[in-house]
Design a protein around this nucleic acid. Structure first.
Length: 276
DNA sequence: ATATTCCCCTGGAAGC
DNA sequence: TGCTTCCAGGGGAATA
């Protein structure tokens, strides 16, 4: 589910309601997530602390906690982090529940348990093993632009679609938005990354940014279970041109959208509009 | 170093 | 109605 626009949507919807609140308690009902939840770390670093800010790095939500700790939440494929009223009945897969100062709850619900929750000292953020190798933020205008994408791709043999999804290069772009950005740019998903010309790199970089920003504007894409911090679905699905549209008409020509598998993931593209 | 393949899990949809 | 198979937004580890 959650790629950059969805994670950013969760961040923005939680921000006004959660920042400044004290975490009264943390209840871990299921510690077996992507990595085992360190309950002691949550007790020490998050419980009884005030939430100072919520940042985003790649697909991680980073909660700055009073006392100099950071809590990193990753939503994996089916993770939800949303506010609930006090004493709402616990649902299946409500794995971690944070009770806030006003009595409301912040709940981490994740059917597939590919998500994760970590807490560590802020000083360790720069060297955190799962954060340290992350690539550029596509919405950072200084770091990500056509020139940068062109330079990055010069020695990359892999298909451009897989390149875009490689978090060591560019973060936040998952299967949906890689497909959509390539469609918008008219670039064939199987083009070896190093063969991307400079003008096409310019165009593709713009399309990546525009697609992500448009999706954020719609509150993200809800295919099945994505919800924001207020429990609301996103509406970018309506605007998808390629992803999930196998066999349907291309919106730009008379051909049909095709599905292929690249690196084990479905890729949707138009054989006519997207050139090698 | 780089490129696929497998795997962690649950559940919804499609096929029989 | 029920059983089986396939597929899914991520990403780390094992494997070629």
């Amino acid at each position: 589910m959650p790629e950059l626009p969805e994670v950013e949507t969760v961040r923005r919807t939680l921000l006004p309601h959660v920042v400044g609140q004290r975490v009264q308690s943390v209840a871990v009902h299921q510690p077996k997530l992507r990595w085992p939840v360190d309950i002691a770390a949550l007790e020490v670093r998050v419980a009884h602390k005030t939430i100072g800010d919520i940042r985003r790095r790649a697909k991680y939500l980073l909660f700055d906690m009073e006392g100099g700790s950071v809590m990193a939440v990753h939503l994996g494929m089916t993770g939800q982090l949303s506010r609930m009223q006090a004493h709402t009945t616990r649902r299946t897969h409500d794995h971690v529940v944070f009770t806030l100062g006003d009595g409301s709850e912040l709940r981490f619900n994740d059917a597939r348990r590919f998500g994760s929750i970590d807490a560590f000292d802020k000083a360790a953020e720069e060297t955190h093993p799962r954060l340290v190798h992350l690539g550029v933020e596509p919405l950072d205008q200084d770091a990500f632009h056509g020139e940068a994408l062109y330079a990055m791709t010069r020695r990359a043999q892999k298909p451009i679609k897989n390149f875009l999804m490689d978090a060591q290069r560019v973060v936040g772009v998952g299967n949906i938005y890689a497909c959509e950005a390539l469609f918008a740019a008219g670039v064939h998903p199987n083009l070896p990354a190093h063969k991307l010309s400079r003008p096409r790199a310019e165009r593709l970089a713009r399309c990546v940014v525009d697609t992500l920003e448009a999706a954020i504007g719609q509150g993200g894409t809800t295919l099945r279970d994505f919800v924001d911090g207020d429990g609301q679905a996103g509406y970018f699905k309506v605007h998808l041109h390629a992803y999930g549209r196998e066999g349907e008409d291309c919106n730009q020509c008379t051909r049909l959208i095709r599905r292929v598998v690249q690196a084990g993931r479905s890729t949707f593209y138009c054989v006519q509009c997207q050139k090698r």
